[in-house]
Design a protein around this nucleic acid. Sequence first.
DNA 1: GCCGAGAATGAATCCATCC
DNA 2: AGGATGGATTCATTCTCGG
Lengths: 242, 242
Amino acid sequence: MTLRPYFQDENVTIYHGDTLDVLPELSNIGAVITDPPYSSGGAFRSDRTQRTVAKYVQSDTAAYRPEFAGDNRDQRSFLAWASLWLNAARRASVEGAVLCSFIDWRQLPTLSDAVQAGGWTWRGVAVWAKKGGRPTPGRFTNAAEYVVWGSNGAMAARDAYPPGVCFASSPRQRDHIAQKPLEVMRWICGIVPPGAVILDPFMGSGTTLRAAADLGFKAIGIEVDEQYCEVAAKRLAQGTLF
Amino acid sequence: MTLRPYFQDENVTIYHGDTLDVLPELSNIGAVITDPPYSSGGAFRSDRTQRTVAKYVQSDTAAYRPEFAGDNRDQRSFLAWASLWLNAARRASVEGAVLCSFIDWRQLPTLSDAVQAGGWTWRGVAVWAKKGGRPTPGRFTNAAEYVVWGSNGAMAARDAYPPGVCFASSPRQRDHIAQKPLEVMRWICGIVPPGAVILDPFMGSGTTLRAAADLGFKAIGIEVDEQYCEVAAKRLAQGTLF
DNA sequence: GCCGAGAATGAATCCATCC
DNA sequence: AGGATGGATTCATTCTCGG
């Protein structure tokens, strides 16, 4: 297979395609930072298999945001699939590479299993504590997302001390339902060794690449949905910061 | 078996004994709030089986704090044991009772399994974000503990909206290595329906009972180690707040 | 420019209906 | 009976707008 980038400049490369097809073609990755589909959202299977907009977007008046793919797996299938891409991403990575994957509370245990099944050493959990968040009567407000992180074997010592918890609001203006704040992705990049190539196998609107490029890293993104490839390419070409 | 309290006043009862022996004698519990031994503290069995003081206390000049029991289980054994006490605690609980158990990142997935194996409905994860925390070079600072929470069947609706993240420092002065801040236990009590009896099956130095009593709840504590029964009884008798 | 009031929004959850 | 659908609910934070 020969890969042709959807977009490329001196720092950033975007591939349009399924992650499991593209990953085997890559190598020399120093850090995998990503926000995969959670396949979450509700106690019942019928809730989880809704469209992503129905599951995750509450307001009718919210600006239109398109669906995203791959968010309808059941628990066992999510584990198997996550183990696959995590293993493929590790094989593309150098010894000592870092992995950071976002997840919600419901899939955190399953993802931690998948990380280890994929051959990574699980090293901890970091927390994005959201300001705001939707309250539910009589329950704890669901106000955090989690970053399961680890490494491909031993990690080199390094003089950096990224905090374990980041307080930040969801971005007001978004191209993707699950878009992360730039501030949060910059925080995660604090774990990356200088000079490492950063890979996001579920690029979405490209916040990881934007943060990586801003911080002087080279970065590669993979995205299955062409409309998000376009959004990300525009964002990176324009240097839009939000 | 007849239970004789180690300590009792109008709001609080302490039983000295193994939780698995005492729980079958209890009933009418409205909330289980506890901080069990994590059996964590290292990637290897030889790390986990150190004495608790060696594992968790780094400073030589720290005031002497006694060992605590039940912290040496491996992963599978932890799951089996946690499922046992969680099930026993649920059997002592009323329909709709709430469960909150502290845990660290390493055992969070296992505890979430045990909660469900014990018959509780898993409803989420709340976060205690610690101020400070010990930085490690090149890693995310391990600066959070987690509260796996759920209920015994359906929960009654209630007009309360406890936050999902609590930001608080570890107590300066501690009688127990794993002692939680009173502020954190008060926060957790925000999920408890008015009038519920609160149970802590791993009482330790009694912070849960102290917070519960301060907020007007009746509370029951179980502790296997007599010296902690004494510490907690003193704390509750004196009304010491820290 | 600053401040205060009003409005919008969030990877949500539950439950009654409908098929 | 069980899956799918749709509506109601909630508050901290942030944004907008006017004075």
